[in-house]
């Protein structure tokens, strides 16, 4: 599942992807961080919607998905 998520997110031409699997007894859980030019100038809600659309299939099986969506300018500032 983690690989599927990563594969789908590649269509955003990301500068950086980080996927942490914190699944437990409740089911599949992932924390995802994506850095992409696609997010520049977009609100947080719209950025997440972009990712939700890409991961529509996966989200049916995932119990919890948390996202952090950064534009390249934000990422370099934070250097995280």
């Amino acid at each position: 599942m983690k690989d599927q998520i990563e594969q789908k997110l590649k269509s955003l031409n990301p500068l950086h992807i980080e996927i942490v699997d914190f699944s437990d007894g409740c089911g599949l859980k992932f924390d995802v961080k994506v850095v992409s030019q696609e997010f520049e100038g977009k609100s947080l809600v719209d950025r997440h919607r972009i990712v939700h659309r890409l991961l529509e299939e996966e989200m049916k099986s995932v119990h919890a998905l948390t996202l952090k969506t950064l534009a390249p300018s934000q990422w370099s500032l934070k250097s995280s």
Partner: peptide
């Protein structure tokens, strides 16, 4: 928006727990 919780302020969707935390 496919998940819960969902937070609204003045009728506008703010997002879920990850956005609110951010």
């Amino acid at each position: 928006w496919p998940t819960y919780p969902q937070l609204y302020v003045k009728g506008e969707l703010v997002g879920g727990v990850d956005i609110v935390r951010e």
